[in-house]
Design a protein around this nucleic acid. Sequence first.
DNA 1: CGTGCGCCCTGCCGCTACGTGAGAGTCAAC
DNA 2: GTTGACTCTCACGTAGCGGCAGGGCGCACG
Lengths: 252, 252
Amino acid sequence: MGYPVGRAAELAGVTVRTLHHYDEIGLLTPGGRSAAGYRRYDDADLERLQRILLYRELGFTLEEIAVILDDPDTDPRAHLRRQHGLLLDRIARLRQMVAGVEFLMEAHKVGVNLTPEEKFEAFGDFDPDAYAAEAQERWGDTDAYAQSARRTSGYSKDDWVRIRAESEDLNARWVAALDAGEPAEGRVAMDLAEEHRLQITKFYYDCSYEIHTGLAEMYLADERFTANYENQRAGLARFVHDAILANAVARA
Amino acid sequence: MGYPVGRAAELAGVTVRTLHHYDEIGLLTPGGRSAAGYRRYDDADLERLQRILLYRELGFTLEEIAVILDDPDTDPRAHLRRQHGLLLDRIARLRQMVAGVEFLMEAHKVGVNLTPEEKFEAFGDFDPDAYAAEAQERWGDTDAYAQSARRTSGYSKDDWVRIRAESEDLNARWVAALDAGEPAEGRVAMDLAEEHRLQITKFYYDCSYEIHTGLAEMYLADERFTANYENQRAGLARFVHDAILANAVARA
DNA sequence: CGTGCGCCCTGCCGCTACGTGAGAGTCAAC
DNA sequence: GTTGACTCTCACGTAGCGGCAGGGCGCACG
């Protein structure tokens, strides 16, 4: 009983070498060996293999996959839900790119000349807030992120333009507040924080005060977000962070 | 004029090292250099870079991308259309995987026990006919494939179950015909060929006799398809091929 | 005028996730 | 008992960069 390596590879649609590799690095060790030393894969092995391949398709490294799969308090159902969410997210991202290509096709047809900046923007260096939901969910397991993916996947090109405009507007006002020397715990900054929270709720997912403070922490901890704010104004990341916390404490 | 490497990298959302690498392998050589030997990227370079990144996201190797981009008779519009189609295809594939995950979740909830084969099938080693459209279009430039992607992306889990069932039913009858010793140019085989053509039209895209014969050739030429048929019965690939050709000649 | 500081250059070594043999044993079939 | 398909274990090769070393630019600031 159990499948030999060739059969397992065929079933999963991978090469024998790949299975050898996974065995070498300890990612997928077959349940047993025959007398002659042949690998024998049982049903549990194949189930694990399937999960590996799905996470791999989603862009995780083999090391990350090992961590995810060997986490003791993640049952099969949690894996399926997470994979489901991540897949929806990928689709949302691809849809955004489709919208970008359609936008460029339009521009080309009408003969509009776009600056390089505009061209790259068409695809979006993915919006930080949408991205945040992903990061949040990647290891957590709420459904804020799945909600985000579901909603963003329904957005049209025009929607994205509107969303981008509103986001940039709010951003400009953050910068203005910082430049004006507003205190992060003051009325103005806290109102901006509240507006920020409502904007996320409106476009992506229900952003509670708790989630919002979580985002604020990430704005400081994750350099991708830090850079996003700091590129606009030195100290802006910390300013936004502090304002969000003050706002959450005051209103919650 | 022209952007320095750091600025170009920032615009495109890649690292400087990546641009160096593309320069090294000749995939993207900056339009000029400053007096001090600094790379200077002009607008045309950035446009090329954007195309590179999109094709890369779609899974092409850098070498393949070079071939695609340096093909003299592919204008910007053709690139956009191709990218648009390929993106829709990726989305369709991911949707199929989503459906697969949902199917597994259902099965898990109801407590159904699936064999490993069934589990891997849930995601589909992608249906050959849908795949065919892709291969057809990847280098050609009709829109059969885009049509296929558009339609399949709208299919639900239940739809896929039905499609799979119908496909397998037809497949079984091909096998039966071959086993029964039916001639490939006979009535029975030709009727199966016609049914095959209509099934593709129904589920994926308008399959003309011309396209159909194209598919038949591919069933013999591309080992992924050959294997698909030969795994069921030796000689089946050739049998299907001959029947499709006979049918096309007789009816067209 | 020099002296940081940030950006740029060219090697070059390292890493991941395998591909691709080489050389040898295994197993079912004829 | 031999053939052909499958398996094993080294072991080196490859793609697409990441990251660091050692060294030039270039402009501001004192």
